[in-house]
Amino acid sequence: MPALFRRVAEKDRKTIHLFVDGHEIEALEGDTVLVAVLTRTGRLRHNEFDNAPRAGFCLMGACQDCWVWTEDGTQLRACSTTAQPGMRITTTEVPWLTNL
């Protein structure tokens, strides 16, 4: 799945590493989680009802369509959370009562 976003400036920042669905990706310091993921791939999450992929919409904390799960079962609003090195994002599985 090709990346959605494209960087047009500020490319000389320090790189950081995150994991998306188990794959290591490179992002830049100061990226939001949304930008870190979407400069690498084409989705953030799946809609709960039709299971179609979604990639955020408003980028200003209003639409709530960018909540992503981390592997340890916490959720982040990707457009308003700064990416941290080592974050492990999952876009495929919802880690909720999976141990049952």
Partner: peptide, 25 residues
């Protein structure tokens, strides 16, 4: 409009202003 790649105009601007990214080519 729910297809990945469709954003609000405001989002397109924020991507650029706050993150130096374009929503597409």
């Amino acid at each position: 409009w729910t297809t990945p790649g469709a954003y609000s105009l405001g989002a397109a601007q924020i991507a650029l202003k706050a993150q130096a990214c374009a929503i597409g080519r």
